[in-house]
């Protein structure tokens, strides 16, 4: 069982640049066809200063930490047992290629169901840009399967 004292666990602060090439690679990976996400000129023609960070990519940027699963080790979560149960984003302002985003990540809940066969870990993330403005928040719910 995951120790509930880990509720409140804070990951090391993490800042990462948003790279244009990475956004294009991600667009390819999800089959994107909208030129706003593929072509700098099209993005600017649509009123964006540069290629936008698409809605789900904030989750991906958080995994650019040197040890993206380091917090699993600290909490005693075994990677092969983990499934992604739920994911929610709240958006406050856009982020673009060239921005530097800082992630503040905190475990906000740990609970179990089915007599402990399934454990759930909820982690909240706040993302701010290089101007200190809140860009987005996301909540990730992991399911840990036992048996």
């Amino acid at each position: 069982m995951i120790d509930h004292r880990h509720i409140g666990y804070v990951s090391p602060p993490f800042t990462t640049p948003v790279e244009r090439g990475r956004l294009k690679f991600f667009a390819k990976a999800i089959g994107e066809t909208d030129p706003v996400y593929l072509d700098e000129a099209a993005a600017q023609a649509a009123g964006h200063p540069s290629l936008p960070v698409p809605p789900t990519f904030f989750f991906c940027l958080e995994m650019d930490r040197a040890e993206p699963y380091g917090w699993f080790d600290d909490l005693g979560i075994e990677l092969p047992k983990v499934l992604h149960g739920a994911q929610g984003f709240r958006y406050h302002r856009m982020a673009y290629a060239g921005d530097e985003l800082t992630f503040d990540s905190r475990v906000t809940d740990i609970y179990d169901k089915k007599g402990g066969l399934l454990e759930f870990v909820v982690q909240d993330n706040r993302i701010s840009n290089q101007r200190g403005e809140l860009v987005a928040e996301f909540t990730r719910t992991l399911v840990i399967r036992h048996g």
């Binding site: 991600f26 990976a29 999800i30 089959g31 994107e32 909208d34 706003v36 996400y37 649509a46 936008p52 698409p54 809605p55 789900t56 989750f59 991906c60 499934l83 992604h84 149960g85 739920a86 994911q87 929610g88 984003f89 709240r90 958006y91 302002r93 856009m94």
Partner: peptide, 27 residues
């Protein structure tokens, strides 16, 4: 998140992204 990426495209095909306030999924 690959599937959620597809779902996000379903939205941004028709909605300018700044108009999206929340996006929540259950797998």
């Amino acid at each position: 998140m690959l599937v959620m990426g597809y779902m996000g495209r379903t939205l941004t095909r028709f909605v300018p992204q700044p108009a999206i306030r929340e996006f929540n999924t259950r797998f």
